[in-house]
């Protein structure tokens, strides 16, 4: 602390930040709630997209696998910000109108789904063939083998990388600033424009994202140590 003071750090800074939060509690809470809501919808959607398309890719289901590959490549190789512009500002020209809220969750869901398809494909493909053969030997059909063997094992392999994708989904909701959807970043910037408390505003904004992201990262490490597959596999 004394070294911080020597650097010209003002300890009243913390109380300034707190009074900023206190004075704008309603807006900030609403913004955070929208960030979490949009993230939750997108993560749930990205989970199902990844599961279904990842399985289709890993098992080379005809047509679906190829379409999934195109989807993954288009999304991975174009910036998500341009995808958001295209959905919100480009589509209305051809008559497709989406609300800001819809674009907010849809854009990050489509994006997260593409990355998750790759995560799950890699996870499913990492399941040793002999385990699936064991499933067939026990009399399971293709779908039961997938549900009872490939999914539990491959899903565990894919879990850390898919949580990484969900972390990026949360961070990418900040881009909804460009369509004025009042999630956390948009809200804090609006409050900052009114109050001109630049330092306080950006401190709160950065701290909130770091708390969310670091919590999720800790979750990955916890799951990695608790869900690790036995070495014998």
């Amino acid at each position: 602390m004394s070294s911080l003071l020597a650097l010209g750090f003002d300890p009243s800074f913390f109380s300034d930040v707190w009074s900023f939060v206190d004075a704008n509690a309603d807006e900030l809470q609403a913004g955070l709630r929208r960030t979490l809501l949009v993230s939750a919808i997108a993560i749930a959607g990205a989970f199902f997209i990844g599961l279904v398309l990842g399985a289709a890719r890993a098992h080379r289901v005809p047509v679906v696998s190829q379409l999934a590959a195109v989807y993954v490549e288009v999304i991975r190789n174009t910036p998500i910000l341009v995808q958001i512009f295209f959905l919100f500002y480009g589509l209305p020209q051809i008559g497709v109108r989406l609300e800001a809220f819809t674009v907010a969750w849809l854009a990050v869901m489509i994006w997260g789904g593409a990355f998750n398809t790759e995560n799950f494909r890699a996870g499913f493909e990492a399941v040793p063939a002999r385990l699936r053969e064991a499933g067939f030997a026990l009399g399971f059909g293709g779908i039961s083998t997938f549900l009872n063997v490939t999914l539990p094992i491959g899903g565990r392999i894919a879990l850390p990388s898919s949580i990484n994708t969900y972390i990026s989904v949360v961070k990418n909701t900040s881009l909804m600033y460009v369509i004025s959807y009042p999630e956390l970043t948009t809200t804090v910037l609006q409050v900052q424009a009114l109050t001109l408390q630049t330092v306080e505003a950006f401190t709160v904004l950065a701290a909130t994202y770091l708390i969310i992201v670091w919590t999720l990262s800790a979750l990955i490490r916890f799951l990695e140590s608790h869900l690790a597959l036995p070495k014998a596999l």
Partner: peptide
Amino acid sequence: VITDGFTNALLAFRDGR
């Protein structure tokens, strides 16, 4: 309907949003 830039506000009006 609040947009970034005038073109997008015009779009919202033209297409009935």
